[in-house]
Design a protein around this nucleic acid. Structure first.
Lengths: 124, 124
DNA sequence: AATAACAGATTACACCTGTAATCATAATTT
DNA sequence: AAATTATGATTACAGGTGTAATCTGTTATT
């Protein structure tokens, strides 16, 4: 699995919002949430390319970046990894921990039920 | 939140199995799963103390370590953090990602239903 | 044409991490 | 008593990370 740092992920996440995109577009998107210097973001873009998380095409002087994987694919792998490390690979204990500490809202519950329903339909 | 590295967490996890415990007990427990040198584990214990994740009492020449928090407490915080970073704080999308990629077993579903049931009882 | 502005590339640098080795000291063994 | 062993403390060292600054070359402006 490609290992991304927190900061790298946030840059990639800004690209997932809409791609392909240039560095300046990504910098623009991040300017609201982050106090990162433009140079910082460019460094991170370079590292993402080096790690194989992004590819780019040249357009004159600029690069136009595209993610090498989908967000859902990446977050799924991270989730599996996380759940493996902290909960021996089982998902219910994570949800249970949230429930016990009152972190679940009615909306969360409804959404979870829906996921379960769909899973069961899928199994016919 | 106290930030622990992967290796630090694994040492702490070995302590959570049963505590308080000495360094050599922890080393013993980890010897099955990990090929870590004794010195490595002691370094990690030192870092855990420095980060405030462990405390210790002296017993002659040895230290007897105790975690400063419970496992459930730590994993809950890590989970919240994780879900915030990757799923904007909502838990269902994580579970949904698992479902869509066929990562859920009937057992997982049963456990999840149970968690939901209990949550609903709790709300009366 | 000279200069300023902007692109990516390279370099910087302190702190974190993984993974120990060495040091100082006390206890145990010979 | 001397030597070995075991404990924690200190030091090591390369690679990753956050956070840029500087360099180099091109395009746009004056």
């Amino acid at each position: 699995m490609i290992e991304l740092s927190k900061a790298e992920f946030e840059v990639l996440d800004a690209l997932w919002v809409n791609y392909p995109a240039t560095a300046s577009q990504i910098i623009e998107r991040l300017s609201d949430e982050k106090q990162w210097h433009e140079k910082t973001i460019k460094t991170l873009l370079g590292r993402l390319v080096k790690k194989g998380a992004l590819s780019f095409e040249k357009d004159g002087r600029q690069y136009i970046y595209t993610p090498c994987m989908e967000r859902a694919e990446y977050t799924l792998k991270e989730s599996q990894n996380f759940i493996e490390r902290f909960f021996s690979g089982r998902i219910a204990p994570l949800v249970s921990g949230f429930a016990k500490s009152e972190q679940l809202s009615q909306q969360d519950i409804n959404e979870l039920k829906k996921v379960i329903d769909e899973w069961e339909k899928q199994q016919k």
